[in-house]
Write a protein that binds this DNA or RNA. Structure first.
Lengths: 198, 198
DNA sequence: CGGGTGATGTTGACAATGTCAACATAGGCG
DNA sequence: CGCCTATGTTGACATTGTCAACATCACCCG
């Protein structure tokens, strides 16, 4: 029995999660409805209750999936550009690009409904994403290219900046001055480099 | 006729708005229910529809009120500390303190449900808050204490950082390392000063 | 001063939604 | 083969936002 995937539907949990992500990305968070998730899968509402405690658990799973994707993207940018100062900036760009590409999904990851404290998997994936940032900073500190402050505090500072840009961009609060988000992110990265240099 | 406040209830609009703010602060955003707003005022649901287009218009009004309060707080910090570099840091502290003191209210101000484009008052109040930051920066540029970059871009950069700290703090994502938010904000302000100096 | 008129508030109803209890089914294990 | 548990369904219910129809009150115009 390779998987437990052969009862009635076959890995319905993964299908539900995938459909939930699709719905959120295409129609927004409000469109995430138990009935709307079940129907495309030929399954009726409440089927979900055999795989998730309730709707908020489904949202938490969506958020976890988001953090997993985000971690992959930023790590690819960091590792794929040589783990230097330039690669660090690409890491920031990748972060903001992810948020811009999946605005509703990103919002679920930081929504008030999903409490990281209640879902251990979500806490784990969120911590993993943050750890990628911490690791990149410690690496640069050993390099001598980043000042030897507490790496966690540096990481929180930088995280706040990119998260803030992402949030403001998603909320369309940067459009007033026809701002190019890519350009703003580049500018922020440049200034941050000054701020965290020795 | 000094006011229009003398029909049945007497300025019900303001009472509804005030009760909505109270509800959000004390019970969270989900507790903001048309029935829950009307009942304490001895008024029935749907009474609200004579003063707000719908529930989201009420939320927008709450958000506008929040921006008004926020603008007052940061301007008081800026003006009350002498409009210098130190005052600018106090401005940032005041921003984050407001968010920490009114987490649910702050979240409504940046929630996805409230689209600034649909409510002109909200757009105005939001722009006013942002303008306070821009003004403080231009002032310092004329001082020579801030580099002569585009002040709007500088403002967006700094706004993103404090907004990010506020959001992460509200989402309790800074508690993992038992972080003191005040301390993190101070650290961020110090690093930002380096980043925006000439 | 009196009736009408529009602003303001109420009641009833309805559809959508999350959730639970009771029921149905199926697939593997004894 | 027969049962047992995992899995999925149906019916029901409370909550909620919203609308239409109705009620009421203040003020204005004659």
């Amino acid at each position: 029995m390779a998987k437990k995937r052969a009862y009635h539907h076959g890995d319905l949990r993964r299908a539900l999660l995938q459909e939930a992500v699709r719905l959120i990305q295409r129609k927004g968070v409000d469109a995430l409805t138990l009935r709307a998730v079940g129907e495309p899968l030929g399954v009726s509402r409440t089927a979900l209750y055999r795989h998730f405690a309730d709707k908020s658990a489904l949202r938490a799973a969506v958020a976890s999936e988001g953090f997993r994707m985000l971690t992959l993207q930023v790590l690819e940018a960091w590792n794929g550009h040589g783990r230097n100062a330039e690669a660090f900036q690409e890491m920031g760009m990748a972060y903001v690009r992810f948020a811009m590409a999946h605005p509703s999904h990103y919002r679920v990851m930081f929504g008030e409904c999903v409490e990281a404290s209640t879902d251990p998997e979500l806490a784990r994936e969120g911590a993993a994403a943050f750890q990628a940032l911490v690791d990149a900073l410690t690496w640069q500190q050993q390099n001598g290219s980043v000042r030897p402050d507490n790496p966690l505090r540096l990481a929180q500072f930088i995280w706040a900046t990119v998260h803030g840009i992402a949030m403001l961009a998603i909320d369309r609060l940067l459009e007033s001055q026809q701002t190019d988000v890519e350009e703003l992110t580049r500018f922020a990265n440049e200034r941050l480099r000054i701020a965290i240099s020795v």
